Simulated assay, not measured.
Amino acid sequence: MVSKSDYNLLQSILDIVGFIIIAIGMIVQSIVRACLPKSYRKFKELSGQNVLITGGGGGLGRLLALRIANQGAKVMVWDVNEEGIQETLKQVKAQGGVIHGLKCDLSQSDDVYRVAKLTREQFGDIDILINNAGVLSGKYLLDTPDRLIKLTFDVNIIAHFWTVKAFLPAMVSKNNGHIITIASMAGHVGVSKLVDYCSSKYAAVGFDEALRMELEDQGVTGVKTTAVCPYFIQSTGMFGNVHSRFLSTLKLSDVADRIVEGIRREEEVVMIPSALRWTILLKILMPWPVVSMFMRGLVPDAAPEEPSNKLNNNMVKPISKEAVNVKND
């Protein structure tokens, strides 16, 4: 007669074997899908989709608005800078796109929920949410004012909670939607002078992964999530003067194109360039002195100037006067 402990052991062995077989199948499927020519890959159509882009008043946000509107989507941009919003609207409409814009201070949850309500009333439910807005202080930790540390977290990650809570319920009810988190490679490796920024981007990567896990756990298979992790991007107002050795900084237009491709392919993670995936593996395998030496050699200075809270690809004007004048502290 088989004892209960023997039965449990047998069940555990069968579970492990089953997991390994299924995992191997998924890995093979993933490799085959990655190796397929683009003409054979499945791409999601963006035409007719309602797309919200935070920080859409300039930089990467504006380029995403232009490209996504060009795919036939209806675009809504949020930004704290009204002039930036109007310029984005002007450029998108000039190419025949459909776009709307609303001013929103993402560092304030009340404003996020207020503008979200206006968005639903004027624009309808959001099908694709792109949390793109972000800020950077670019100072050594001990030189960074407390209010800028708080601002970095409020915009770079805390705002994601408010926007997702505002628009996810409708996605879940329809079992259809897509949430894109613009994170960073700084969400996987630490960089000097970016302690607050890296911390917020680590949180953004974790937010995306935990949200995806939660949706799968609840059986919400139609709502997808994507974490975008680019290297330093040129012409965003954040890392234009970064000292980067061995690896070139990224062109804004290339990053925008790759993000749109990642959205249409519903990729879980988009690393730009994709070769940086291997650095994550090396970080796990290598001892810390090797990791530190490599990163300090790759990025000798992430913020060679002392920016006045330079704003990301995403928010062209300061959230408030106090948020900008770092040098006055």
Rank of each mutant, 00 (worst) to 15 (best):
G58W: 15
G58M: 12
G59W: 06
G59N: 04
L60G: 05
L60V: 08
G61Y: 11
G61I: 08
G61D: 10
G61H: 11
L63E: 12
L64H: 03
L64S: 02
L64R: 04
A65C: 14
A65K: 14
L66A: 03
L66P: 03
R67K: 15
R67H: 09
I68D: 09
I68K: 13
I68E: 10
I68V: 15
I68Y: 12
A69H: 06
A69G: 15
A69M: 03
A69D: 07
N70S: 12
Q71A: 01
Q71K: 07
Q71D: 09
G72A: 03
A73L: 12
A73T: 08
K74D: 08
K74F: 07
K74Y: 11
K74V: 00
K74Q: 13
K74M: 11
M76A: 13
M76H: 12
M76F: 12
V77W: 10
V77A: 10
W78L: 04
W78P: 09
D79G: 11
V80Q: 02
V80T: 07
V80L: 03
N81D: 15
N81E: 08
E82S: 05
E82D: 12
E83L: 09
G84F: 10
G84E: 11
Q86K: 13
Q86T: 09
T88F: 08
L89S: 03
K90N: 09
K90R: 10
K90T: 05
V92T: 07
V92Y: 07
K93T: 13
K93I: 05
K93R: 13
K93A: 11
A94H: 04
Q95Y: 01
Q95F: 00
V98H: 01
V98P: 00
V98R: 00
V98I: 08
I99L: 07
H100A: 14
H100K: 13
H100Y: 13
H100Q: 15
G101L: 00
L102D: 05
L102K: 12
L102N: 04
K103Y: 03
C104H: 07
D105H: 09
L106N: 00
L106C: 00
Q108R: 05
S109R: 11
D110R: 05
D110I: 01
D111C: 04
D111F: 02
D111G: 02
V112S: 02
V112R: 02
Y113P: 13
Y113D: 14
Y113K: 15
R114D: 11
A116V: 07
A116H: 10
A116F: 08
K117Y: 09
K117V: 09
K117Q: 15
L118Y: 11
L118S: 15
T119A: 12
E121P: 05
E121R: 09
E121Y: 01
Q122G: 01
Q122C: 10
Q122Y: 10
F123Y: 06
G124I: 04
G124T: 02
G124Y: 09
G124K: 03
D125I: 02
D125P: 14
I126F: 07
I126E: 02
I126N: 05
D127E: 02
I128M: 10
I128P: 08
I128F: 11
L129M: 12
L129P: 13
I130R: 03
N131R: 00
N131L: 10
N131Y: 00
N131I: 03
N132F: 06
A133C: 04
V135E: 04
V135D: 01
L136P: 00
L136E: 02
L136W: 07
S137V: 09
